[in-house]
């Protein structure tokens, strides 16, 4: 067993884990963050995406021991009293059907907007290429992300004037 210590959605966790434990299983089974699903065995689907030290990672492709000392944000840590703008936009733009891809899609979108606050439609599509959705056809997902980018830009313009 190896000792790990990390902050998950602002709460500190300390545990002894087997080195083979994947971060996603630590999040779900030890830390109770079942909002983060597992969708594949090949690192392709992106359903498990979380932020690690501020950038997106696929939590099925990180060992819990590799995340020792890290700051993790899951979909459950994104809302701050009220829905995060991305959560609201996904709801209002009908950007999900079964919802299985949604937690990863929203975390990947949060990373995308951190990296590039004013993306073009093509940049949104490229930024989300690691996240598969088998229901929506992506159209409304892209719309939701562009809407949040537009809102953020509007807020900045408002604050500046």
């Amino acid at each position: 067993m190896n000792h790990v210590s990390m902050r998950i959605d602002g709460v500190r966790y300390d545990d002894d884990v087997e080195p083979r434990l994947l971060l996603v299983h630590y999040l779900r089974e030890v830390a109770g963050r079942t909002g983060t699903p597992v969708g594949c065995d090949t690192s392709n689907c992106g359903a498990c995406t979380v932020l690690m030290n501020g950038v997106s990672v696929k939590s099925c492709s990180v060992l819990a021991v590799q995340a020792d000392g890290a700051e993790i944000t899951t979909i459950q840590g994104l809302a701050n009293g009220e829905w995060h703008p991305l959560q609201r936009a996904f709801h209002e733009e009908h950007a999900l059907q079964c919802g299985y891809c949604t937690p990863g899609m929203i975390m990947a979108a949060a990373d995308l907007l951190r990296d590039n606050p004013r993306p073009s439609e093509q940049e949104v599509r490229d930024g989300l290429e690691g996240n598969l959705c088998r229901c929506t056809g992506y159209q409304n997902i892209v719309r939701a992300v562009l809407r949040v980018a537009g809102e953020m830009a509007g807020e900045q313009a408002g604050a500046a004037s």
Binding site: V57, D111, L112, G130, N131
Partner: peptide, 9 residues
């Protein structure tokens, strides 16, 4: 190469 989340690691 790959996608942003993979590229970060």
């Amino acid at each position: 190469i790959a996608d942003p989340a993979v590229r970060h690691r």
